[in-house]
Structures are given as C-alpha cells and as structure tokens.
Design a protein around this nucleic acid. Structure first.
Lengths: 195, 195
DNA sequence: TCTATCATGTAACCAGTTACATGATTTT
DNA sequence: AAAATCATGTAACTGGTTACATGATAGA
C-alpha cells in the first residue's frame, strides 16, 4: 500500500520504467525518446541523472541488464529490460500518483507566505508582471493543446492540466493585485513599510 | 538582474533572511517561529536543513554571527543578524519570485504524461479517488481561510492561493474523468490494454 | 582540415535528508 | 526515578547536479 522505500520516488525513474514496457533500451535511447516525446516539459530531465536512476533501478531489481552492445563507433551501451517487480512497482507508483495528491511546495506560494517583506505598492506592480507572463504561458499552451488534431488527445492531457493551473493562478493573481491596489491591505503590512 | 549564483535558491533560506529582518535570532528560534507562523505549510522545513542554510547564508555573507549565548542549560546558541547584502538579496529574490513564474514539475503532471501505462478503466476510478481527496483539501482550506477574522488577511494569502489551485485541479480532474468514462479515449490508449 | 555538434558516459561536488547525540525539563 | 519530550546541534549518507572526457560525424 505505502509506495515502499524503493528509489523510484524520482519521476525520471518512472519514465524509465514506463518506456521499458515498450521494449528494452539503453540509457541514451531512453533519453532521446524522452525528448522526442516532449516529456521534459513535465518531468525534469538532466542526462546525467538518467544514468543515476538507471543504476538505482538496477540496484533495486526493477530493471536488469539484458546485453551489452559493442560496436566500434559507440562506447559500450548496456541495454536494460524491465523485470516483473519493476512492472509491478511502476503500476503501483502510477496508481498512487493519480489517486493521491502529494503535497508540493511551489515557489510562488513561498513568496506569498513572506510577502510582507515587500512594500504593498511594489507588490502590486510585481503581480502585474506575473499576470502578463502567465497570460503568455496560457496562450502558448492553448496553441499547443488546440491546434493539434494529428496528435492523440491522450498525449496532450499534461498540457491541458498545466493550462488549467496557469489559468487559475492568473485569476488569483489578478484578484490579489486588485485587492492590494484598492489599498485594503490592513495596518500590519502597511506599517512595516512606513517612514 | 539574474538572481545570481547565490545559495538562496532555497526557500528556507528566504525564510531565514525574512525573519532576520525583524530581529537577530539563533537558528533554533528561527525554526520555532517558522512553525508558530505555520510556514511549514508553504515552505518545506526539516530542522537539520535549517542549520545548513544558515551556514550557506553565512558563507555567502548574507548573515553574520552577532554573539554566542552561553548559559548552562542550553548548548551554545549563535545569534545571527542580517547584513546589508543579505537584505538586498532577500528583496531581489522576492521580487523575482513574485514577478516571474518559475517552471515547476508537479508529480501529478508527470503521472498524466505517462498515463497510458494504466488501463483507462482503472484511471477513471483513480481519478475519482483524487477528486474526493481534493474536495476534502478544499474544504479544509476554506475553513482555514474563512473563519478567521482575527488573523490579518495578508497572512492568509498563501492559503487562498493554494485553494485556488486545488479547486482548479479538482475541476480538471473531473473533466478528465468524464472524458475517460465516456470512452472517448481513442484507439491508441485502448489498444495498449487489450487482451 | 578545422570547428561544431552528436553520442555516450564518468567523476567530483554539494545540497538536503535521516539518523544520532546529549543535557534539561516535565510527566507519570 | 523512569520515561517521555523539549531544546539544540552534529555527522553520515545519498541523490542529483555541474563539469569534464572522448570518439565520431558533419558542415564550413
């Protein structure tokens, strides 16, 4: 039930397991595929990290080396395949991730928690800048999600999700900005910035 | 302009700087205050990490030791105070965080990007579980934000923000669930799970 | 042929976490 | 007075990142 002590807490590890369902691959191939499918938008990817998680997954028995290719124009490439425990782990992690929201700590939330260190007037202007940036992001996402009948919808849901969040944030930022601008911020905050 | 190479990428570092504006403090006091003000909800806090970031901030000249208290019923406690570069850095980081959205990688987005590894039927059920969880979260947040006239509004905006995001996610999850349930998921996904 | 870029990997570094340590205070 | 908890910190581990390395291929 509890998604065990296993190392696959790393989203990148999930990708590896998920891709290896399709066929055995060597690490570099996994990385290439990840980029081809634009998963770096949703899953943080550094190519050195890939070799790391592959090692971890091997260590924990979720994948295993299947063969080592040796031709002269590449370094050795080890091809890995999913093990049965690996497939089980993948499914369990996926189920948990979909069904149970995990607590995240977005940086903007941290900033809001400390907002009183900036004077209200400036905050209003900064929020305005953010609002514009979010507008642009939303625009791009809408393009991406919209104009593609050639891509299966199921491959766009990450973007739809992102779009939903960006829109919500944009609306909230606007509300907040207006509240600040209307000067209803209360004595406490204002008093911290009086001279 | 670019919020330099400095170590204060860590949100916890921001808290330290922000709190030290009020008065010099020793690390343990910072931690206590952080919890009293419920900032652990918005900023990940491990007490050992606190000592780490304090060291980093000292190393980088953003804070400095002011005195070392030595009474017999505590270990030595070093009191730190903000330096002028520290105050500047704090303000710059805050401005950047408020004005410029940073790319985050929420786990649920990763899961959505890999959703095809689970069969659509099961996904619908899992989404339903998530929907319920989000409903509860929203309920709690609403209580927290609502029933408090005694707390200054500015100290609740992190929660308001969170609430806005949770609500948006809930709505999106519901849309997605319905789409899956209506069986419009397309051949690709379904074919991966036929036997 | 020189330079850039791809393909592929290793190594060194550092941030953040878990676990341990220890004296005081409070509860049972 | 034993057990639990608070107060305060250090140390060891490990995951992830940045930086380095090296041969092949492709443009200029």
């Amino acid at each position: 039930m509890a998604a065990g002590r296993g190392s696959v807490n790393n989203p990148l590890g999930l990708v590896v397991l998920a891709f290896l369902i399709e066929r055995p691959m060597h690490p570099y191939e996994l990385g290439k595929l990840l980029k081809q499918r634009n998963k770096q938008e949703s899953i943080k990817y550094r190519h050195a990290s890939l070799y790391m998680v592959v090692d971890q997954l091997k260590r924990d028995g979720y994948i295993e080396a299947r063969e080592t290719l040796r031709d002269r124009q590449h370094p050795e490439r080890t091809v890995y395949q999913l093990t049965e425990p690996g497939r089980v782990e993948l499914e369990n992690r996926m189920r948990a991730l979909v069904a149970v929201p995990v607590k995240e700590f977005p940086q903007f939330e941290a900033a809001l928690a400390l907002i009183v260190v900036l004077p209200p007037g400036e905050v209003a202007a900064l929020l305005d800048r953010r609002r514009h940036a979010l507008l642009e992001q939303a625009e791009q996402l809408r393009e991406h999600v919209g104009a593609r009948q050639e891509v299966e919808h199921v491959h766009l849901i990450e973007y739809e999700y992102r779009l939903a969040l960006v829109e919500a944030e944009r609306e909230y930022v606007q509300r907040l900005r207006n509240w600040v601008l209307r000067g209803e911020v209360g004595e406490l905050w204002r008093s911290l910035h009086a001279e």
